[in-house]
Computed example of a mutant assay.
Amino acid sequence: MKWIIGLLLMIGMQSAWAHQPSVSSTILSQQGDNSWVLQVRSPLSAFEYEIKQLNGETSFSTPEEFKSLVLSHILKNVTIQVNGENTVQLIKGFVKLGHETNVVFQATGIPEEIESIDVSNKSFEHIGYNQSALMIIKSGLEKQQFVLDDKNQHSIKLLAKGNQLVEHTANSTAGIGFAPTSFMNYVTWGLGLLFILLFGFYLYQSNKLDEATRQGNCL
C-alpha cells in the first residue's frame, strides 16, 4: 500500500513540474536618439534546445558558432510590422551569453507615429507551454505587458488608442502579469508542493507506526 501511495504522489509531482513554462521576453524599446532596439531574453537552455532541435546535436562546437546560429534563429522567427505596411528590419545583432541569454538587434524602419504594430516571435515555439512577455517601450505610451504563447500562435496585433496599446482581439491579454494559463501553472506547482508535503507526512506517520509496533513486539 505504501509504495502505491508513493507512486501516485510522484506522478502528481511530475505532472506539476511538466507544466512549468519556459519564460522568455521580447522587448522593443525606443532609445533617446529615436532609434529602436529589440531584445529577446530567455534562459540559455531554451536557446540550446531550439538550436539543437532545428540544426542537430552537433551543430556547434564553440560559443561563436552558437551565437551565429542564435542570431540566424531570431532573424527567421521574429517579424515586426508597423502601421500595416512598414516591415521593420533587424540589423547589427549580438548575443550576450549567460544563464539568461540576451539577443539584441537594432530595429530600423519604425515611423515616429505608431497606429498599429504586429509582433510575432516563434523562436521558442517547440518548447511546451512557452510564454514570451512582450513589451513595447515608447515615449508617450504607458508601460504594458502582453503575452505571446500557443493560444495566439506567438503573434499579436496591437492598436494605438491614446497613450495605450490595445490588443486587436475580443479577449485582450493586456495588463500586468501573464495570461490566465500562468495562473494554472501556479496551481499545478502548488499541487506539486502539496503532494510533497503529504508524502513527507505519510512517511513520518508510517515510521512512527512502525516504531510503535516494534516497541510493542519487544514488550
Rank of each mutant, 00 (worst) to 15 (best):
I4M: 07
I4Y: 03
G6Q: 06
L8P: 04
L8D: 09
Q14V: 00
S15D: 03
A16E: 02
W17G: 01
H19V: 09
H19R: 09
P21W: 08
V23M: 15
S25N: 03
I27Y: 12
L28I: 15
L28P: 13
S29A: 14
S29Q: 15
Q31E: 12
Q31N: 13
G32P: 01
N34L: 05
S35G: 05
S35C: 05
W36G: 03
V37M: 12
L38A: 13
Q39Y: 10
V40I: 15
P43R: 01
L44E: 13
E48V: 11
E50T: 09
E50Y: 05
L54W: 13
L54G: 02
L54M: 05
N55Q: 15
G56H: 04
E57G: 01
T58S: 08
S59A: 15
S61R: 11
P63D: 15
F66Q: 08
F66G: 02
L69K: 15
L69N: 10
L69C: 08
V70Q: 00
L71M: 10
H73T: 06
I74V: 15
L75F: 10
L75N: 14
K76W: 12
K76H: 13
V78Y: 06
V78M: 08
T79C: 09
I80F: 07
T87E: 09
T87K: 10
T87N: 11
V88M: 10
Q89G: 07
I91M: 06
K92T: 06
V95R: 07
V95G: 01
K96S: 08
G98S: 14
N102R: 11
V103I: 15
V103N: 04
V104A: 00
A107G: 11
G109L: 08
I110A: 04
I110K: 02
P111S: 06
E112Y: 09
I117M: 13
D118N: 10
V119M: 09
V119Y: 06
V119H: 05
S120W: 10
S123R: 08
F124G: 05
I127E: 02
I127H: 02
I127M: 04
Y129E: 12
Y129R: 05
N130V: 01
Q131V: 11
Q131H: 14
L134F: 06
I136F: 12
I136V: 15
K138T: 04
L141W: 09
E142P: 01
E142R: 10
K143R: 14
F146C: 03
F146E: 03
V147T: 14
V147N: 13
N152Y: 05
N152M: 05
Q153C: 01
H154L: 05
I156Q: 07
I156E: 07
L158R: 11
L159N: 15
A160F: 04
K161I: 06
G162Q: 11
L165P: 02
V166M: 09
H168M: 12
T169H: 04
A170Y: 07
N171Y: 11
A179D: 12
A179F: 05
P180D: 01
P180M: 02
T181V: 03
S182H: 11
S182E: 08
Y186H: 04
Y186M: 10
W189I: 14
L193S: 03
L193T: 00
L194P: 00
L194T: 07
L194M: 13
L197I: 11
L198E: 02
L198W: 03
L198Q: 01
G200M: 12
L203F: 14
L203W: 13
N207W: 06
N207C: 03
L209G: 00
R214S: 07
R214H: 07
N217Q: 05
